[in-house]
Design a protein around this nucleic acid. Structure first.
Length: 797
DNA sequence: GTAGGGTTAG
């Protein structure tokens, strides 16, 4: 008798202790396991609800195998044990096990709570349809849905974006069930209407109206009611209405304020978001990790580094109060803030100090390095990552593409697919940008086709990448076609298309497009002005370019940077306006740097302005003594003037300073394969045939008046030898290879790493006439379209 | 034994 009583007392004590553990946070689970160990040691055999509680604890601490072991020891587990297990498995992310337990339970032993648990399990695993299906089953089997059922099933309904009928039907079911005065059910119903309002299949105003009507008529609103209504308006782009609801909240509901702040951030109203935080603080509304993350990301988005740093300092002051879960998201936001503001070392320091890191932390630090163009470090982060998602791949691919590693970008894009990631439009944009860099037109076209097939063709980022790709591959018409058919455009799209026209020498069209952009109220940015100035420069539109430059500050409040000044100088000196260029340099608010002198030097070369050219070259030698381009331009200038002695001096200078000219390299795509030719190539398997065909072509070209221009040969040698050096230039080899391999009549598109050589430029004019085909060459600076003996660049190369 | 809102990476 006494013994039985003892066991009961012990059991009650165990139960009370476990209850205490479960009501606290996950950190108490290990204590619960110690209690279990105590049971085993003292020979106490847990049964009934104590066993159920233990199973729950093991599942929640991710020890599913052990939970299952306990469950299997129960001879006939009751409905409570089964319900616990379904919920626990689903929290651990194992829907299959939940389903197994559910299916293995006879209908006669089931109850409403049991169904509720399974409906929630489906809902948590984003399977809204299965949840609703089960709701129908339970009603068919005569189980009465209660308020828990409706909150769960309405949550599931919100997952599937369908037409308005679903919401209305469920609303009727709620009315019939008698749970219509339960606050949690009404909250869920409002939430379902709100979700439905953003579906394209439903009328937004009708659904928001229904939600607001329920909200207004609710007698007992709780924290969730206010918050749901605020997020509802935020998600349906009605921030004013959301604000009105929040202004009606009299209690201290931090979550409602958080919803409002994040709403402002997502819609780009950064100052409103910061103002909300200020007011929240003054009013004594409880702020937490959610608040800080939103505020920090607002600062990051708007580049408000100072504000972000202040927020960081504020958080550090209260650090000891914070849970690790709090620190994770706040630290992630901070890593992103410092990364976006270019403070990669600070971002790194926070990242290194983080006790817990997740995929978001890794992606944030990866982007920080990628954004600064620090690709080597980014690559090593990418390699080290414990896991990767679509975003990790996308960031790395676009990073490689934008920093000139096109080939690696494409490789990674393929690797990503091999590893089972379906690329999103951003990943495609990265791959397409890689094609643009490489001039891989066929590859780019294939990606374009896949994009359409996968339904990403209305994507802004992919569209913008396509414009650039087609333009950089030499087909400005295709770029225009993409531009015209894009469903929506942003300033990047306009900039890309203006740049496309400019690069190909269509200066007037570029100006026309720029004017159209202004008419459509798109505000031009720094990049727009860089592109329009280049376009004017390529086409010799001096007056227009100068006028746009002057409008930057006055009309658009953009302070011209050195890059803008450099393009203006380029524009002026190409047209031979040296004194005007000089005036501009003198008016600059800063000392002229390398870009300015470079622009000046190349203008001097075109116009044979020797004195100024030498001056500019000397400045450049001081500023960047290792840059080979300066030596090449200077010696070209001497060569054009017939000053061979000075050419030799420059050559000696290069030798003495150990400067090697970057070797010329050209490439062409034939049948989706990129063929690369170096100067004096001996590596390409078909190069001998190329040399032979070139020899034949030169004979024909000479008949039309082509005379090889040996003054572009830097090295000192016999005249005949110099001539043969000209025939080893990489751009000639690539063009001739194209003529041999591409179908008759097809345009030849060749890419070169450096500026095109003067003799090649002349030779291609004759060549285009001899073969009756168009030859397009993209060099380091611009495009040349050779057609019937003429070049589109107007000899401004 | 079962439910519902606000955060961070391009």
């Amino acid at each position: 008798m006494r013994n039985t009583l003892d066991i009961r007392t012990v059991a009650n004590r165990y139960a009370a202790q476990l209850q205490l553990c479960c009501s606290q946070r996950s950190t108490s689970y290990c204590i619960a396991q110690t209690i279990h160990a105590h049971m085993i040691a003292s020979g106490f055999k847990p049964r009934g609800h104590i066993l159920n509680r233990l199973m729950d604890i093991y599942c929640k601490s991710s020890n599913i195998a052990y939970a299952l072991h306990l469950f299997n020891k129960i001879p006939e587990p009751d409905i409570v044990a089964r319900t616990t297990l379904i919920a626990a498995y689903s929290t651990a992310g194992n829907l299959k096990l939940s389903q197994e337990v559910f299916g293995g339970t006879p209908l006669s032993t089931r109850d409403t709570v049991f169904y509720n648990a399974m409906i929630t399990a489906y809902s948590h695993n984003n399977d809204g349809h299965a949840a609703i299906e089960l709701f129908r089953d339970m009603r068919r089997d005569d189980f009465r849905p209660d308020n828990y059922t409706f909150t769960s099933v309405l949550g599931a309904l919100a997952l599937i974006v369908e037409d308005e009928k679903y919401c209305q039907q469920m609303h009727c079911a709620v009315l019939k069930s008698g749970t219509v005065f339960v606050t949690s059910v009404l909250n869920a119903l409002i939430s379902a209407y709100v979700k439905c309002a953003s579906s394209p299949l439903a009328s937004s105003s009708l659904m928001m109206g229904a939600a607001k009507k329920l909200f207004d008529e609710m007698p007992n609103k709780d924290e969730l009611t206010w918050t749901t209504m605020i997020t509802g308006y935020v998600r349906n782009n009605n921030l004013d209405a959301a604000r009105e609801i929040l202004d009606g909240v009299t209690e201290n509901i931090g979550v409602a304020w958080n919803a409002m702040i994040s709403g402002y951030v997502h819609h780009g109203f950064i100052h409103e978001a910061l103002e909300m935080f200020r007011r929240m603080h003054l009013k004594g509304i409880q702020h937490d990790g959610f608040t800080y993350t939103s505020v920090i990301s607002a600062c990051a988005y708007a580049g408000l580094f100072k504000h972000g740093k202040q927020m960081h300092a504020f958080i550090l002051k209260t650090e000891e109060k914070h849970e690790p879960e709090f620190s994770l998201s706040v630290n992630n936001a901070l890593v992103s803030l410092y990364g976006k503001c270019g403070k990669v070392e600070e971002a790194r320091e926070i990242f290194n100090k983080m006790l817990i890191r997740d995929l978001i932390s890794w992606n944030a630090i990866l982007s920080a390095y990628v954004n600064l163009g620090r690709i080597v470090e980014a690559k090593s982060f990418f390699k080290e990552m414990p896991e990767r998602n679509l975003l990790s791949w996308t960031v790395m691919i676009s990073g490689l593409a934008q920093n000139g590693f096109g080939e690696e970008g494409l490789k990674l894009f393929n690797q990503m697919r091999i590893e089972g990631f379906e690329p999103c439009d951003y990943a495609f944009a990265g791959a397409i940008t890689s094609c643009a860099m490489l001039g891989a037109l066929e590859h780019g076209r294939q990606l374009h086709a896949q994009l359409v097939k996968l339904g990403h063709d209305s994507s802004l980022s992919a569209g913008n990448a396509l414009i650039t790709m087609y333009a950089r591959c030499g087909i400005v018409e295709a770029a225009n076609c993409v531009f015209l058919t894009m469903p929506c455009l942003d300033s990047v799209s306009w900039n890309a298309m203006i740049a496309a026209l400019g690069q190909h020498g269509h200066g007037l069209q570029a100006i026309e497009l720029f004017e159209q952009m202004l008419k459509e109220d798109i505000v031009p940015d720094r990049i727009t002005f860089l592109t329009i100035l280049s376009a004017c420069s390529h086409a010799g539109l001096v007056k227009e370019g100068h006028c746009y430059f002057n409008s930057m500050r006055g009309c658009y409040n953009i302070t011209p940077g050195e890059d803008h000044y450099a393009r203006l100088i380029d524009l002026l000196v190409r047209a031979g306006k040296f004194s005007e260029a000089n005036d501009v340099i003198e008016s600059m608010p800063f000392e002229p740097g390398a870009p300015i002198w470079e622009a000046l030097l190349s203008g001097c070369r075109i116009h044979g302005n020797m004195d100024l050219g030498i001056q500019a070259a000397e400045r450049l030698f001081e500023l960047m003594p290792q840059h080979d381009g300066t030596y090449v331009l200077l010696s070209n200038m001497y060569a054009t003037a017939g000053r061979q002695n000075d050419v030799a001096k420059v050559r000696k200078l290069m030798r003495d300073r150990g400067i090697k000219k970057e070797p010329g390299c050209s490439w062409i795509e034939v049948e989706s394969k990129v063929h690369v030719f170096l100067v004096n190539d001996t590596v390409h398997p078909e190069v001998q045939a190329v040399y032979n065909y070139l020899e034949q072509l030169v004979l024909e070209m000479r008949k039309l008046g082509y005379v090889p221009d040996t003054k572009f040969v830097l090295h000192d040698m016999e005249e005949a030898q110099k001539e043969s050096v000209l025939y080893t230039h990489s751009e000639k080899l690539a063009v001739v290879f194209g003529l041999m391999k591409l179908p008759l009549g097809a345009t030849i598109r060749v890419f070169k790493n450096l500026r095109i050589c003067g003799d090649c430029h002349n030779a291609f004019k004759f060549m285009s006439k001899v073969v009756g085909r168009e030859i397009v060459v993209r060099d380091g600076k611009r495009f040349h379209h050779f057609r019937n003996g003429e070049c589109s660049c107007g000899n401004y190369w």
